[in-house]
Structures are given as C-alpha cells and as structure tokens.
C-alpha cells in the first residue's frame, strides 16, 4: 500500500483524512461531556451517548415542525432556501443544547447527587439505568427501525472539480459548529469564574468545598455544559449522517468515551485530540482494513490505551489516592 504512493492513493488518503476529521470533530464534542463529568465526579456517564441520541430525535422533531418531514409527518417545504436552512440549523442548536443540558442537569440532581457518598459502583450502575430509560424514550420517539433524517444540507462539493477531493457543505457545517464550541469551552473553563470553580472541584472537592464553592451546583452545571455539547453534537451528527436510531447512542457514546480516555480523561484538549484520532482511525480502518472491522479496531485501541497508558496521551501521571 505505502510504496504504491501514487496520486490516486494520496487522493483517497486525503479524502479519508477529511471525512475522519469531520467525524472526529463530532465525536470530540460528545467526548467533552464525558471527560468533564469524569474529571469532576469520576463517573463514566453511560447515559451520555443516549442523551446525544435524544438530541438527534429532538432535532428531527424540530425539522418536522419546520415542515421538512420526518416522524410520520409529510414534508411540506420542498427545496428550502439557504436562509431557511440556516434558521433551522440555528433553531435546532438553540433548542437541543438547552434541552440536553437541562436533562443532564436534572438527571444528575435526581439520580447521581444522592449517590455522591456511595461506593463508586452505585452511580455507574445508575448511569447504565439512566441510559436504558433514555433508550426507551428514544424507542417511543422514533420507533425501533432506523429513521431517515431529512437531507437538509446539500452534498455539494466546495473543492474544484479537478482535485478529486470532496469537501462538502456538510463538512463545512461540522467544523463551523464544533470548532467554535470547543474554543469557547476551553476559554470558559480557563478564564470564567465557574470554570475556575469546576477545575478546583475536579482537583480536590473537599478543599473546594472548604473554600466556599458550592460543589454540588458546580457538578450539576458541569453536567449541564456537557449535555449541551452533546446536544450540539447531536444536531450536527443528524444533519451530516442522516440516519438515526434509538440504539445509536451506545456505539457513538463508546467511541466518544474511547476518545476521552485516549486523550487523557479529564483533559479538555485531550478529548478533542482523542476525538480526532478516533475519527481518523474509523475512516482509515474502514478504507484499509475493512468496514466491518472499524468498530473492533476502535475498541482494540481502547483496550491497548488503557493497558499501556491509562492516563491517555495528554494526561499527567498521578498516583491513585488511597
């Protein structure tokens, strides 16, 4: 493969890279939610992927409300104008983000908060329970089959015809939504007052509490922010991939969690880096190993990372507290 490095090979390779990075940016957005929550309460939030799935169904409902069909409604609007599409995209983001954020906040308040002093297994198992409930909601919302999501954003290629590489409006939309959110989050955590409180709570909850930080509120807001990012990821995912189902949360959630672990769990830049790598692995894996093996490849990486470098690529080595 490598020595046959002619132009066709590189063209395909560049294409895989673009697709991989676009998918990776999406995964990174979900991974941020995992990493933030894990960083602060050391909980693998199994329900996060399913929250993401609910965000997808909410977006579909919004599209149906805008007359684009879906969920058994007929499409009344044909060939929406670019402005209309932009309005819909913005509405989806503005509805799905607060929805997922509020839902995650509520779940933390009702389910995880009473378990803060319990052994670690308890919140983890509860998270699996929440994930089941979300899946059931998704099942009622969209049915047991895969659901088609209206192809709103055109697949028009933005590159010149001769280049042989496709970079579509969809890819542009993915980067246009995810990159600002990631930058915004980084700045927020780094410079805002709440961000500082979050970092303090993650570092040492008892000390943070003694310094007058309402740690439960901070934890709740961390869940909310993570949920909002999953909501944004859901809108972008649904618009790009165009197929959603109630079981999608598990697989994508695991990809995202792998990304978070890969980058070093608890580290925001780590989640982004991990997400991009996972995206690349998935597309290179599909192209050069076989499509059916891509999932196995990602989980294989998860195992290898955990065994050989459990702190991830960007994580610092800390000894476990006794």
């Amino acid at each position: 493969m490598i020595f046959a490095a002619d132009s066709a090979f590189w063209q395909a390779f560049t294409q895989q890279t673009i697709d991989g990075l676009a998918f990776g940016a999406l995964i990174a957005l979900v991974a941020l939610g995992y990493t933030m929550v894990y960083g602060i309460v050391e909980l693998i939030n199994f329900a996060h992927g399913d929250l993401f799935m609910l965000g997808c169904f909410l977006s579909l409902t919004i599209l149906a409300a805008f007359g684009l069909g879906g969920l058994g409604f007929d499409a009344t609007v044909k060939d929406p104008s670019p402005v209309y599409v932009a309005v819909i995209l913005l509405t989806c983001l503005l509805v799905a983000m607060p929805f997922c954020g509020a839902l995650n906040f509520a779940v933390d308040w009702v389910v995880y908060k009473p378990l803060r002093t319990a052994p670690k297994l308890a919140p983890l198992v509860s998270a699996i329970g929440v994930s089941f409930i979300f899946m059931n909601v998704g099942l009622f919302w969209g049915g047991a089959q895969d659901v088609n999501f209206p192809n709103l954003i055109p697949d028009t290629n933005l590159m010149s015809e001769g280049s042989g590489i496709r970079f579509t409006y969809k890819d542009a939309m993915v980067f246009g939504v995810t990159v600002p959110l990631m930058i915004g989050l980084t700045l927020f955590v780094q410079y805002s007052r709440l961000g500082k409180a979050m970092r303090a709570t993650a570092q040492n909850p008892t000390a943070a509490k003694l310094m007058g930080i309402d740690t439960n509120k901070v934890i709740g807001l961390t869940f909310a922010i993570g949920g909002a990012l999953a909501g944004a990821g859901a809108v972008v995912y649904a618009l790009k991939v165009n197929t959603i189902s109630y079981t999608m949360g598990f697989q994508n959630g695991l990809y995202a969690f792998t990304a978070a672990v890969l980058g070093g769990i608890g580290r925001i830049p780590g989640a982004v880096l991990g997400g991009l790598i996972i995206g690349l692995v998935r597309y290179y894996g599909s192209a050069y190993v076989g499509e059916t093996w891509a999932g196995a490849l990602i989980f294989g990486i998860l195992i290898l990372i955990l065994v050989f470098r459990p702190t991830g690529l960007l994580g610092s080595t800390t000894r476990e507290k006794v």
Binding site: S126, S131, F132, M135, N136, V137
Partner: peptide, 12 residues
C-alpha cells in the same frame, strides 16, 4: 428497557 433502567436506579 425503562423498567430495567428504573429498577437499576431504584436499587442503587
């Protein structure tokens, strides 16, 4: 699924 999930949460 919802029944299983709820059972897990309530048990915990």
């Amino acid at each position: 699924l919802a029944i299983f999930g709820l059972a897990l949460i309530l048990m915990m």
